[in-house]
């Protein structure tokens, strides 16, 4: 549209400044994590660590059950996704390609999940899961998310786009019903699944409040919750370098994955906006 060099320069300058403001806090955290404990208590901030050290990272591993939190997070995030993939596939397929009595009403009842804040049901879900004896388990962290209105909605759009003729042709070739779903519909919906998977994994990797409510010990706790609890202990709150090292360890892997698969992540979140 615009080709004047001055305009181009302006765009670059503005974007550079905005990016700088967003990125600097993170750079500061990375540099802090490699500093020695008392180095940060200087009234004139030193950007670069004087004696770069890994001590803080080892300290984190001693101060909290980091690997247990990591394992719990992996189990919770991938466990939720695994069950969701089954529930949303079946429901989306039914809503997209089948006629049945009450379909529209049931679809609205499904969308209720998108319209409410999950936090407003926290009390009752806490009571339900406690009465099932699931307090302080990974299953309890996963339970409220095993059905996904967003995922169902997203896949339904994809399944709706498959032409009727394709289904008829497949049916004549003996590839009807469930087989059509498995061999034709699901492969065609791979981009939709990918978008959903990235949003779901990110959301549950990052979640803090629900695990806070439903766990009581480090047995089932996830990474972000572990980080938050560490920050409120005497050790964590007094030692900025160790706290920043812990923060860095929590975000490192997802952030690297984001940098590598940037486009995919961003496209997924674009759709999450359109679907939500």
């Amino acid at each position: 549209m615009h080709s004047r060099p001055l305009w181009r320069l302006t765009v670059h300058v503005l974007l550079f400044l905005a990016a700088l403001v967003v990125v600097v806090p993170f750079v500061w955290i990375v540099l802090t994590a490699f500093k020695e404990r008392n180095e940060v208590f200087s009234l004139i901030p030193q950007w670069l660590p004087a004696h770069p050290t890994l001590k803080n990272f080892w300290g984190v591993l001693d101060a909290m059950p980091f690997w247990r939190y990591y394992w719990n997070t992996l189990v919770v995030a991938f466990g939720i996704l695994g069950v969701q993939l089954v529930t949303i596939t079946l429901a989306a397929y039914a809503f997209a390609r089948m006629e049945f009595w009450g379909r529209d009403l049931l679809f609205i009842l499904l969308l209720v999940q998108l319209m409410i804040a999950p936090q407003s049901t926290v009390i009752q879900n806490y009571l339900t899961l406690t009465s099932l004896g699931l307090l302080d388990t990974r299953l309890a962290i996963m339970a409220p998310y095993l059905a996904s209105a967003f995922g169902t909605f997203l896949l339904r759009q994809t399944f709706k786009g498959i032409p009727k003729e394709l289904e008829e042709a497949a049916s004549l070739d003996g590839c009807g019903g469930l087989r059509f779903l498995v061999y034709v519909a699901i492969p065609l919906a791979v981009p939709g699944y990918l978008a959903f998977a990235l949003v779901s994994l990110t959301y549950h990797w990052n979640e803090f409040f629900w695990p806070l409510v439903i766990t009581e010990t480090s047995k089932a706790r996830t990474l972000t919750l572990g980080l938050g609890i560490f920050a409120q202990t005497a050790e964590g709150s007094a030692d900025w370098t160790m706290l920043m090292a812990a923060t860095l360890m929590v975000v490192a892997v997802p952030l690297l994955l984001f940098l590598v698969f940037q486009r995919r992540f961003i496209n997924s979140f674009m759709q999450s906006g359109l679907g939500g």
Partner: peptide
């Protein structure tokens, strides 16, 4: 097909 979804949806939503 929609049963699994509505099972969880009913209990937790």
């Amino acid at each position: 097909y929609i049963l699994p979804t509505f099972f969880f949806l009913f209990i937790f939503t």
